[in-house]
Design a protein around this nucleic acid. Structure first.
Lengths: 225, 225
DNA sequence: CCGGATCCGTAACGATACTG
DNA sequence: CAGTATCGTTACGGATCCGG
């Protein structure tokens, strides 16, 4: 029980009464990638501990940010998903991601615990809606042991964990270092394809190039601060 | 020293490494209202304690979010202000305020520690830019013992603590309960004026009405969730 | 008085072990 | 798989004290 609230008559303070505890916003971040089971969240945030994850999920459920839902795969049980109200956090959190991008370098980092879907999620915040005004495409990416998908459409790139439930336009596979090379612009998609660093499982090369044209990291100095 | 970082390769986690500690975002909120001195911030966040405020400000300075600046009023000394990089937090925080508005009721609340400028700041996030496309006006409000000003222009309402440094279009004075009645729509500005609940120090009544037409609280059920 | 630094009791955190 | 219980460590909240 988080009886430690700010108790101020201010929407920011009220929001932080719900979200301000350690780990809480990262739990929401995980659920921005799609519904997840208790154990899945814990795998992504191992230092959190089962106890705290349990507490945080209960608090988020109490505040109508998260709800339990029953799932059947891989086994029968419950999963946690954002409510429509919780989905309202996507905008503030992605704005925060855009700000945090200036604190983030993807070069010379330890990749042992890195996750491509988090990199993709962060970069999706940098995409200018005007650039994808009339684009609509669904991608599936298999990066190392991860599988996630990205839908480009309606002025946004939306990243979700796991394989796509519907047929995708393009499906590709690569390693995490290759993925990083692509988003850093050090490797071109077509070049990586011809070198066998990227395997095109389905779809055409043109659409693949377009995805990595959007998901490009630019260092802070080159962006508006 | 907050040596307790998430250490994830993710801009959200990196942002929270800087901002995620308790009180930190509320310190930034205070500075969104303008530069403040150490003691001023502490007065607004008394439960924080001097040592934590000191630590947080140091961490924010280290990360180029906040900078010290020398001031001469009321006495010679230093104040803390957001850097341009820190100003970049205005958008995410105000988006969070908009979300937190659904958790906030301004009715039947304890007003002993309430601050009108925080209410105004929160409501400024709800203003539709389209409504103030070609408006440009500067207001000074004296609510109880507080003085703050609000500039309506360039598609946004910007609230800052203290009196305006430049001449204002409208200056008014009222009590906090009256201010709340105005933003709740329970009292009309013209009506409050004629009853003497609001004192028009300078400027015309029409512009005053416009301000409180913008700064209106609508309960969550009436807004998009 | 302002801008802190030091100290202490309490609550939260991080990790592990244990249970239905 | 999904938690609960426990425990040592760390941070928080509050008060006091220090140097300019």
């Amino acid at each position: 029980m988080s009886t430690r609230t700010y108790g101020q008559l201010c929407p920011i303070a009220r929001a932080l009464d719900v979200l301000g505890d350690r780990w809480t916003l990262l739990v929401v971040r995980e659920l921005l990638l799609g519904e997840k089971r208790f154990g899945e969240i814990l795998t992504m945030l191992p230092a959190m501990g089962t106890n705290r994850l349990s507490n945080r999920l209960a608090l988020l459920c109490d505040n109508n940010v998260v709800e339990k839902m029953s799932v059947t795969t891989p086994a029968s049980g419950v999963a946690y998903a954002l409510t429509p109200f919780g989905e309202g956090l996507r905008k503030p959190i992605m704005d925060l991601a855009l700000w945090g991008m200036s604190l983030t370098s993807y070069e010379n980092e330890d990749l042992t615990a890195a996750r491509a879907e988090l990199i993709a999620l962060g970069l999706s915040a940098t995409v200018d809606p005007a650039r994808i005004q009339n684009v609509d495409a669904l991608y599936e990416l298999q990066v190392g042991a991860e599988t996630f998908h990205a839908r480009v459409g309606q002025g946004a790139v939306r990243v979700r964990s796991g394989p796509s439930a519907t047929p995708v336009d393009v499906a590709v596979r690569c390693t995490l270092p290759v993925f990083l090379g692509l988003v850093l612009g050090k490797v071109k998609a077509l070049q990586a394809l011809s070198q066998g660093k990227v395997q095109l499982i389905s779809g055409d090369r043109q659409k693949l190039t377009r995805l990595f044209g959007l998901l490009q990291y630019r260092p802070a100095s080159a962006r508006a601060v």
